[in-house]
Design a protein around this nucleic acid. Sequence first.
DNA 1: ATGGCTGAGCTACTCAGA
Length: 258
Amino acid sequence: MKIISWNVNSVRARIDNIKNYIKDSSPDILFLQEIKTQNENFPTNEFEKLGYRSYVHGQKSYNGVALIGKYELNNVNTNFIEDDLKQSRIITGELIINNKKIELINIYVPNGNPVDTDKYEYKKKWLGQFIKNIKKKIIKNPNLLIAGDFNIIPEEIDVHDFKKYENDALGRLEMRKKYRELINIGFKDIYRYLNKKKQEYTFWDYFSGSWQKNNGMRIDYFLLSNNLVNNVKSIIINKKPRSKNKPSDHTPVELILN
DNA sequence: ATGGCTGAGCTACTCAGA
């Protein structure tokens, strides 16, 4: 069972890249973030031609998330949290894997920059709501898989130049504490759990050769509840899609479960 | 070096990203 998460930075601008990537990597479930389109303009047919069904929580121009799957998902929900600004940043669904009912939670956390503005406060409140509801959910179902673009740099090792980000909305201690709070509910950041010292990134901005210089950060990850950790076979960051023409600024993270 | 580049909406330029 291969589950992949990818912030595509527009599903329509990226559709050829995404289709080629699906043909190469053949995910069972694909979590997409920043689709930047409304439900009615989502390229459902393109995914259907490749054998996938689409569950979409879109929005005009900004944000938007989707679950793409070879299988039907149950109880798909776009109201996991109360979002003050009504932005489309979360979609959940259930899937049974090896007799475990797993809750798939696909998120696109607000960026939060600039700090000390209402955008930063929105991110804080969004994360607070999310953490509160995860605490409730894990009591009902101990099998939670959260993946997506968290927009938080967990540790210094997760960015090329930590000093540059320590007062940024992605690197501020206050936000890294939110990440810790989530982990402490009972999750493992699977990439870091299996790669204690490895320095790899999932995002490189489009400016001034950041990709070529490997000036990146690791802000996309898979958090699995402790009950699921023994089901993990492997996890990799696949850098190939970031090297293509007209790439997303993020690259996919690929998880394989037994 | 808070600039650099990219996408959406729209057709000149702003907003947003991280």
